[in-house]
């Protein structure tokens, strides 16, 4: 059952990832992106990281993909996507080389096979997360909060400044 579920979610993830890359229509690409994230969330559940699966669905598939769709709607680019075939072969070669290096690295590491006979999941307990976040990782949590504040301010400034310059013209 576990293997079937892994195959299902892995296939969903990979097919939708390819869909994101090759789709000409941006809206379809964003939808594929959302489905791909659902697949990854399923894999997180299989890895017993339930909280992360939920957060991934909430933040990524909920907020980020919706934001992408919103921007696509807002921009309304009528540009006909030109077929980019000049660099397709080069790009495919580089990406395949990256994949080959990654897979080779995994297969030459014999310790990975031993680790597969693993201990229990640690990501299942919400209490563990909270404890770690507010003791060991307290400083990063504070920095992340500050980063979010700065990002919010940055977005506001970015959205307003253009209007100001346009008004000056």
């Amino acid at each position: 059952m576990g293997l079937f579920l892994f195959n299902f979610f892995a296939l969903l993830t990979v097919i939708c990832a390819v869909g994101v890359v090759v789709n000409k229509n941006t809206v379809n690409a964003a939808m594929c992106f959302m489905l791909c994230l659902v697949g990854v969330a399923g894999l997180f559940v299989l890895l017993e990281a339930y909280l992360l699966a939920f957060v991934l669905l909430l933040v990524y598939a909920g907020a980020v993909a919706a934001l992408f769709l919103f921007i696509v709607m807002l921009l309304d680019t009528h540009s006909q996507p030109r077929p980019v075939r000049r660099f397709a072969l080069v790009a495919a070669t580089i990406a395949a080389a990256l994949l080959a290096v990654a897979v080779l690295t995994f297969h030459q590491q014999p310790k990975l096979a031993m680790a597969a006979a693993s201990t229990g999941a640690s990501g299942a307990s919400l209490k563990d997360y909270a404890y770690q976040l507010f003791t060991t990782y307290l400083l990063p949590v504070q920095i992340i909060g500050f980063l979010l504040l700065i990002a919010m301010l940055g977005v506001i400034v970015l959205s307003r400044k253009i209007e100001a310059t346009e008004g000056a013209k």
Binding site: V40, L98, V103
Partner: peptide, 28 residues
């Protein structure tokens, strides 16, 4: 089993990288 997850992760990473290299639309 760990291998499967890592290879899948590398595959998705390569697909995303391919998209960054190939596409000309900033959103994609």
């Amino acid at each position: 089993m760990l291998h499967s997850y890592l290879v899948l992760s590398a595959l998705v990473f390569a697909i995303g990288f391919f998209g960054v290299l190939l596409r000309r639309n900033t959103l994609i």
